[in-house]
Simulated assay, not measured.
Amino acid sequence: MNFSDTAWKVFNQSVEDYHVLDNIETLINNPFPEGSLERILYAKNWIDTVQWHLEDIIRDENINPVEALQLKRMIDASNQKRTDLVEFIDGWFLDHYKNVNPKKDAKINTETPAWAVDRLSILSLKVFHMALEANRETASEEHRIKCQEKLDVLLSQKEDLSVSIDQLLKDIENGDVKMKVYKQMKMYNDESLNPILYQKEQK
């Protein structure tokens, strides 16, 4: 099984497990063994799935402002966890390919394997929810047809992205692509880098 097939299967299991209760407060119950890549991928998608629903909730026009602020803080924290876990996955790939010597003419890809995997994880959520809309009995036929068209595009995108990820990993393994990782340097949560936060500390 290709890596992308494994990742897609894990992501879909995470999405389905979350929707058993469909509650942002549901605690993760990761079914995969400690130290396995599948366990990491499941945790990654679980973060994405919870955040997906936080983003839905905060868009309620009648939401209480205090609740909205609390949700914004939760989304910020979730974004940080997401970034940290993506970088952790890239660390896993770096270690996995540590004995590969890149060729002299090895290229550098525009994104790392883990950030491509991040897009695949989000795509699994788009496919899941668009499929719900394409089959929602309370929606109009026109709505369902439009959503099915969008779902077809998403599934095509999934195929293309999966091929691209597997090809990237193969190129890294063969030394045709040099894997280079940069930290995201998120500044908004850092009290020493966000001027709103450090100016407040100086007052």
Rank of each mutant, 00 (worst) to 15 (best):
Phe3Met: 07
Thr6Ala: 03
Lys9Gly: 03
His19Tyr: 14
Val20Thr: 08
Leu21Ser: 15
Ile24Trp: 01
Thr26Glu: 12
Asn30Asp: 02
Pro31His: 02
Pro33Phe: 07
Leu37Gln: 08
Glu38Leu: 05
Lys44Phe: 06
Asn45Met: 05
Ile47Met: 11
Thr49Ala: 10
Gln51Cys: 02
Glu55Thr: 15
Ile57Pro: 00
Ile57Gly: 01
Ile57Glu: 05
Ile58Gln: 07
Arg59Tyr: 02
Arg59Ser: 12
Pro65Ile: 04
Glu67Phe: 03
Leu69Met: 14
Leu69Arg: 13
Gln70Asn: 07
Gln70Ser: 09
Ile75Val: 11
Asp76Leu: 14
Asn79Phe: 14
Asn79Glu: 15
Gln80Ser: 08
Arg82Met: 09
Arg82Tyr: 07
Asp84His: 02
Glu87Asp: 15
Gly91Ala: 11
Trp92Thr: 04
Phe93Glu: 02
Asp95Tyr: 11
Asp95Gln: 14
Lys103Trp: 00
Lys103Cys: 03
Lys103Met: 14
Lys104Phe: 11
Lys104Cys: 04
Ala106Met: 05
Lys107Pro: 00
Ile108Phe: 10
Thr110Phe: 13
Glu111Gln: 13
Ala116Gln: 06
Ala116Gly: 00
Val117Ala: 04
Val117Tyr: 00
Asp118Trp: 00
Ser121Ala: 07
Ile122Phe: 01
Ile122Gln: 07
Leu123Val: 08
Leu123Ala: 12
Met130Phe: 08
Met130Gln: 10
Arg136Ala: 15
Ser140Ala: 07
Glu141Gln: 07
Glu141Trp: 01
Glu142Gln: 15
Cys147Ile: 06
Gln148Tyr: 08
Lys150Asp: 07
Asp152Met: 05
Ser156Gln: 07
Ser156Gly: 09
Glu159Phe: 15
Glu159Leu: 12
Glu159Tyr: 04
Leu161Val: 10
Ser162Thr: 15
Leu169Met: 11
Leu169Gly: 03
Ile172Ala: 05
Glu173Leu: 07
Asp176Met: 13
Val177Lys: 09
Lys178Val: 02
Met179Val: 10
Met179Ala: 07
Tyr182Leu: 09
Tyr182Pro: 02
Lys186Met: 13
Met187Thr: 06
Tyr188Phe: 10
Asn189Lys: 08
Leu193Gln: 12
Leu193Trp: 08
Pro195Ala: 03
Ile196Phe: 13
Tyr198Lys: 14
Gln199Ile: 09
Gln199Trp: 09
Lys200Ala: 11
Lys200Gly: 01
